[in-house]
Design a protein around this nucleic acid. Structure first.
Lengths: 120, 120
DNA sequence: CCGACGCATTGACAGCCGTCTATGCATGGG
DNA sequence: CCCATGCATAGACGGCTGTCAATGCGTCGG
């Protein structure tokens, strides 16, 4: 099991834009891991649905029906997003609330963009 | 075969950030296709190597050795990036020169970011 | 205490993906 | 005219991935 990883893009080696200099193998592998978590229609929709939901958080039962996927599949995708450092999981009572990790998506965008985008 | 697709992110429906409103299935599928092309260590390194190369372009023979992959594999990855609208291919004589599509990566970054990043 | 509910985990299966070797196809030099 | 060179394509194969049905596990209400 990989276990929860901290998003390397938020670390000190954060702001080296892709187009500046050739990526070394390790950096490319880290960035690819994060992008792989994003590169799925269901997960992209989950991210946007969580972000747009009331209070910036949503539980699985809010997401299953509009997505048109079964509950285990939704749980699986949410786990992938949490492990990638893009979502947080907060279990309150019977429900598990998911929310965006602030700045995580912006960090990915900053690496892809040739601009030095301020995250704040 | 899918054939070369124009990058939908550069179209009129360009600047709807992921976190603003829930993505519909079609938009999510389009964005996922582009991200899937990016979500590979070899392709990320290829993009950065092409961008950082002299004149902003590089041929396959420039990329094969530093990547540590065989020539057919490199050609395959480059084709994926071209089909995704991230690279251009210009065959001159025996060589095939690849270059970044201006603004393509920035367009992807703009969709991911919560900022309204100016592309220019 | 027990049943219903919300969610995670497991196991299974089809399909896609990254890589290689082998081969084909132009182009240019001698 | 022929061979070397640079690149693309074809075919094969192991591994990963997205999905589902079935099941397990806490938590709350009655």
């Amino acid at each position: 099991m990989a276990g929860p990883r901290s998003l390397p893009l938020l670390g000190p080696a954060c702001c080296a834009p892709l187009v500046r200099a050739p990526l070394d193998a390790a950096t490319a592998a880290d960035l690819a891991r994060t992008l792989k978590a994003l590169a799925d229609p269901a997960r992209l929709r989950l991210l946007s649905m969580v972000a747009a939901h009331d209070g910036g958080e949503a539980c699985v039962c809010d997401l299953t029906e509009p997505l048109g996927l079964t509950q285990p599949t939704v749980s699986h995708h949410l786990k992938v997003l949490v492990d990638a450092g893009l979502l947080t999981r907060d279990k309150r009572g019977v429900w598990a609330y998911y929310a965006l990790v602030p700045g995580a998506l912006d960090a990915v965008a900053a690496v892809l963009s040739s601009q030095t985008a301020p995250v704040g």
